[in-house]
């Protein structure tokens, strides 16, 4: 299977090329186009409980499995917001993905909703983060974002604005804290809360904050 990511960063789309019999697991609604020999099957992977957890985490209850029948085929997938896509090989130590960034993965990747507790709640990104685990090496996940995606190396410690987080190596520890020393300064600085990462590992960030963008454009729209 080959992931060919095109049109980066704003209209990014992954062209997934499958050999006969290969399968792709994708978020509901992610398919843009496909060759007619692709078979699509809809299921709540991991059962109803897992489906519900996914739903609360901003993902969909059902997911689609695409299978190439009678020879090679292709599926085009993307997320719904403008922005970048990267493919990440899921490390043995697992990968954390911010809710709603999951697009598709190899079948050997298990992605489950993880209750982030107050930490993620205060980070302002909803109650859930997703945790992807791989059954072995070479298993990849396609991750989408609002903005361009930059991979950063956390070498000891790194501060990230909470609205710009996309994914991180599960081996990193993080705490949510004020951006400046005092509450007033934090508020005035416009940065609010930030995530302080510690340890060695990778962090992927998005160059725009979807909530700030939504607020700015939303207030210019006609009232609902």
């Amino acid at each position: 299977m080959n992931f060919n990511v095109m049109y980066r960063p704003s209209g990014a789309m992954a062209q997934v090329q499958l050999e006969g019999g290969e399968q792709l697991l994708a978020e509901a609604g992610a398919m843009i186009g496909m060759s007619p020999n692709m078979n699509m099957e809809t299921q709540a992977k991991g059962g109803v409980g897992a489906g519900l957890k996914r739903m609360f985490s901003g993902e969909s209850f059902f997911q689609n499995t695409f299978t190439a029948m009678n020879g090679p085929g292709e599926v085009l997938v993307a997320h719904s917001l403008p922005g970048d896509i990267v493919s990440i090989e899921v490390p043995q130590s697992a990968l954390m993905i911010q809710s709603s960034s999951f697009i598709a993965s190899h079948m050997g990747v298990t992605t489950s909703a993880k209750v982030g507790g107050f930490k993620t709640f205060f980070a302002g990104e909803g109650l859930f983060a997703l945790r992807s685990e791989a059954s072995g090496p070479g298993q990849q996940v396609l991750v989408g974002a609002f903005g361009g995606i930059t991979e950063m190396q956390c070498d000891g410690n790194l501060v990230i604005d909470t609205g710009h987080l996309v994914a991180w190596d599960a081996g990193l520890t993080y705490k949510t804290q004020k951006s400046a020393s005092g509450w007033l300064a934090s508020f005035l600085s416009g940065e609010g809360l930030v995530c302080q990462f510690e340890g060695q590992g990778r962090v992927w960030i998005q160059s725009r904050n979807p909530r700030e963008y939504g607020t700015l454009i939303g207030r210019q729209l006609p009232p609902a």
């Binding site: 410690n157 990230i160 604005d161 005035l188 416009g190 940065e191």
Partner: peptide
């Protein structure tokens, strides 16, 4: 820099 524009920084 414009307030609110920071995405990330070294600690």
């Amino acid at each position: 820099a414009e307030a609110g524009s920071m995405v990330a920084k070294d600690s």
